[in-house]
Design a protein around this nucleic acid. Structure first.
Lengths: 334, 334
DNA sequence: TTGTACGCGTTATCAC
DNA sequence: GTGATAACGCGTACAA
């Protein structure tokens, strides 16, 4: 079934059917109804490939998730939440969502190659871009449309992105720890090639300095956004006796909790703990953390990308979303 | 850039370029090399829409996830794992993966309508199909290609599916509980309109009967695949003093643990506990459970769907994967 | 308000 | 081995 067939059944021309489908003006109500009825009867849907071919627009948005091991999975719901946000925005405007998922241990090079080869999408949403990311580099060079979620490497301002104010958030978190009397505040970071990790560290240092507290290298551990990294990191910190830990992410904070429990230390009495992200698990663990709705970042990124695609906005756009400190028992007791 | 342009630059005809791109025979090595070089120089990729239009195949597979609240998210990594499996298979054969995610609280009707309207995909993978599912019904009626993950409602044999042997697995789980001396074995199910939940209940009953144990309605709670449901279910069971619980899923088991801890009961001394799925969390919680690699189910389903699309297999196909009992501390102590 | 005719970029079917 | 040429199904100027 195609436009032609529908047209014949309705006794009109193909163009008229096309007009009806695309809700254009200049179709008499009578004809419109007749056409709509035939369409309904035949359960007709226009062929998207044919439409894409001529409009040069597929109505598909791609989302690239370049790492999955223990990140897409497990106790980390970051990507699912991001996807949910993207999906919401995409649904609203009747786009479709293509998902590019890296294989376990897949090289970034190879992943980039795969994503780039396919040309289904009108634009891409890139997550977890790292320095020298081949996918990022390629897209930038061949200026294909894309929006980055999180801050791009080197604060690259030529590209569009949606991120949260990590620096301010980290300052807020550390200020809170200082306010409750902590002085030996440690920090465990996420992968330091991811800008969010860098910015959160930056905010941590800012806050300490602003209060005249020393930035002690012994109290800074460079880790990964992963529970195990939190566990290992905390073990490394224990000898230096911190009275508080600001984790780079909630997942890290969970690992810190594991290590503290194992060491027989109490939270927050012995060590106060702040996470980042306010994932589902944070509430369950009664973790003080930074809330920033990953979901909203996803939906804003998708909306932005669609606006860029449709030419409703000029490239590049920078969106920095505010955050909120959520105080729970891991810093103030019960 | 299109085939024509490449052809001109290489001094050949459009057809030859097409042949080179599609790795067809009857192209002299000399010409092939020249064409390949021009393609590389120009960074050319064929237009998928044009290709789809003529081949009537997009190389896109859709995956429909009809419920997300507290399921796609949170401590339940079921869908992410499924997706990871699908993605693996899809990548291997150079297909693309389209994701249909239901909104929070979105009606199944509405979701079905959305999925059906888009015709990008060559076929669909359906998860969590329930009885009377409008999406399922529609696809079946208009015989569009799809594969169901999990057992379809009413053991519908006209459709293709990939599932695990839930009945046998449940029997295995309950046999284990009986073997370690438990007699008052309770059951908390997942949504009973999902076949997996039904089959696991069936296996539970089979095992009890096979050992001449009574099936006590007081020891069966109809719940949902959700931590809270496990918690509530266990509270409901406590007055009936079970000495073991077989949860319909690991997430449910986590809720059971919450309730047991709250009640001051020990696992496995007072109550032994078995889950189902062997999610990431199961190992962390030292939960005896049924392992069945959700990821593998996903990749098998995708492979099957692609085989059906390419006509390498006849519809319908039924794949039932084996399972494995993983014994941990929640049944045998430490 | 409706219809005609062309083009989008590719594959498939011929003829050479 | 290679090259014309006709589809594929739709949108869209332009004509009527």
């Amino acid at each position: 079934m195609n436009l032609e067939d529908i047209a014949e059944k309705a006794g009109v021309s193909r163009s008229t059917v096309s007009r009806v489908i695309n809700n254009e003006r200049y179709v008499s109500e009578k004809v419109r109804q007749r056409v709509l009825q035939v369409i309904a009867e035949e359960n007709f849907r226009p062929n998207p490939a044919a439409r894409t071919l001529v409009t040069r627009r597929s109505g598909i948005i791609g989302t690239a998730i370049p790492q999955t091991t223990n990140v897409f999975f497990g106790d980390n719901s970051y990507y699912p939440m991001l996807l949910q946000g993207v999906a919401e925005a995409v649904n609203q405007r009747d786009y479709a969502l293509l998902l590019y998922l890296a294989e376990e241990q897949e090289e970034r090079e190879n992943f980039a190659e795969r994503v780039v080869r396919q040309r289904h999408a009108d634009g891409l949403i890139l997550s977890s871009v790292i320095e020298g990311d081949p996918l990022f580099t390629y897209l930038l060079k061949h200026d294909r449309r894309f929006v980055i979620v999180e801050t791009p490497p080197h604060h690259e301002e030529r590209v569009s992105y949606v991120t949260v104010d990590n620096v301010a958030a980290a300052e807020m978190a550390v200020n809170h720890l200082i306010a409750i009397g902590r002085r030996r505040i440690a920090k465990i970071t996420g992968q330091i090639n991811i800008m969010d990790a860098v910015e959160r560290l930056e905010g941590y240092q800012n806050a300490l300095r602003a209060h005249g507290l020393p930035v002690d290298p012994n109290l800074i551990v460079y880790g990964r956004f992963h529970r195990d990294a939190g566990y290992e990191g905390m073990k490394q910190l224990l000898p230096h006796q911190p009275d508080a830990v600001f984790a780079g992410g909630d997942t890290i904070a969970l690992g810190v909790l594991d290590a503290l429990t194992e060491a027989g230390l109490c939270v927050p009495e012995d060590v106060a703990l702040v996470g980042f992200d306010d994932l589902d698990v944070a509430e369950r663990a009664q973790l003080t953390t930074i809330n920033h709705s990953v979901q909203y970042v996803g939906s804003r990124a998708a909306t932005l990308l669609m606006d860029l695609i449709e030419g409703r906005l000029e490239h590049p756009q920078h969106i920095v979303l505010p955050t909120r400190l959520v105080i729970r028992r891991s810093t103030v007791g019960s």
